[in-house]
């Protein structure tokens, strides 16, 4: 049975698209047929992060409104077997999505794929609600920072009340916390919220903690999902998160300080 996962947050700029690209790629790497769908109508970026921007001809909105077939709009990823991208429109607005249209496309995707990863726009209004409408699970991307945590909490309220599952009285969407841009040094100095603090406030299970990693920007520059960069700690943490999403019990990494020698300590202090 195909599973629909929404990557959402409320606040913008916390790493939703990076996460959607990484998790989608990771699921495909593990042998599951996966499609990543861009719901951010008007601010199309998923194709850019996944490096397929020059191959976009038709999009999600064309499929809903203009009689274009799904197969014409789906882009097959050349790097990862079994991975597809459904880009969105750069010129239309969020009004171009309707529940009926989204439901029709989702049902069709469910016939073809094991996982449908929906990349939500920022905000808590129509666009974001459309992205989570059909979801079975939600990945709530959060930075350890007050505005992001607060917005994630608001978004969780919407996930619990404004989804198809909520309205039909089905089992609620399973929400997971993905804490990104986690800077262990600042956490240890008491200058950044700890994982445990965020979990205490949001009260949802942890899917993963993604360390702050310069290679994330490097990969987005290249149009490469960070999970494909073996040297990247963020990439490794995303691989762990994918394993947990598949039900495996993987311990958290990058959440405790590594044992360091005196020299390290000295260098960091004087930095």
């Amino acid at each position: 049975m195909a599973k629909v996962i929404v990557v959402t947050s409320g606040k913008g700029g916390v790493g939703k698209t990076t996460t959607a690209a990484a998790i989608g790629t990771g699921l495909a790497q593990r042998g599951h047929r996966t499609v990543v769908v861009d719901f951010d109508v008007g601010l199309r970026n998923l194709d850019l992060i996944m490096g397929v921007e020059r191959r976009v001809v038709f999009d999600f909105v064309n499929v809903i409104n203009d009689g274009i077939r799904l197969n014409q709009a789906l882009i097959k990823d050349k790097r990862t077997e079994g991975l597809y991208i459904l880009p969105t429109s750069q010129t239309r607005d969020k009004e171009a999505l309707t529940r009926e249209g989204v439901e029709r496309v989702m049902e069709e995707l469910k016939q073809e794929f094991d996982y449908i990863v929906c990349d939500s726009p920022a905000g808590i209004e129509k666009g974001a609600q459309m992205a989570l409408w059909y979801a079975d699970e939600a990945i709530v991307v959060t930075n350890p920072e007050v505005a992001s945590v607060r917005d994630s909490d608001r978004m969780l309220g919407i996930v619990n009340s404004k989804s198809r599952r909520a309205e039909l009285g089905l089992e609620p969407i399973r929400a997971h916390l993905l804490l990104t841009r986690y800077d262990l040094d600042r956490v240890e100095r008491g200058d950044m919220l700890r994982l445990e603090d965020v979990v205490e406030i949001l009260a949802i299970p942890v899917l993963g903690v993604i360390p702050n990693d310069p290679l994330v920007l490097h990969c987005s520059n290249l149009g490469l999902p960070v999970i494909l960069e073996p040297k990247s700690k963020a990439g490794q943490a995303y691989r762990d998160a994918v394993a947990r999403l598949l039900g495996e019990d993987v311990p958290l990494r990058f959440t405790k300080p590594e044992r360091r020698g005196f020299f390290d300590w000295f260098m960091r202090r004087s930095a």
């Binding site: 007050v146 909490d153 100095r189 008491g190 919220l193 603090d197 202090r269």
Partner: peptide
């Protein structure tokens, strides 16, 4: 140099503010 960590625990303040805010929201 040795005291750099003292008196800067802004994360604790962040947590307390969030707890109040989230409860109100």
């Amino acid at each position: 140099f040795f005291r750099r960590n003292r008196g800067r625990r802004s994360a604790e303040t962040a947590k307390q503010r969030l707890q109040v805010l989230v409860a109100l929201d």
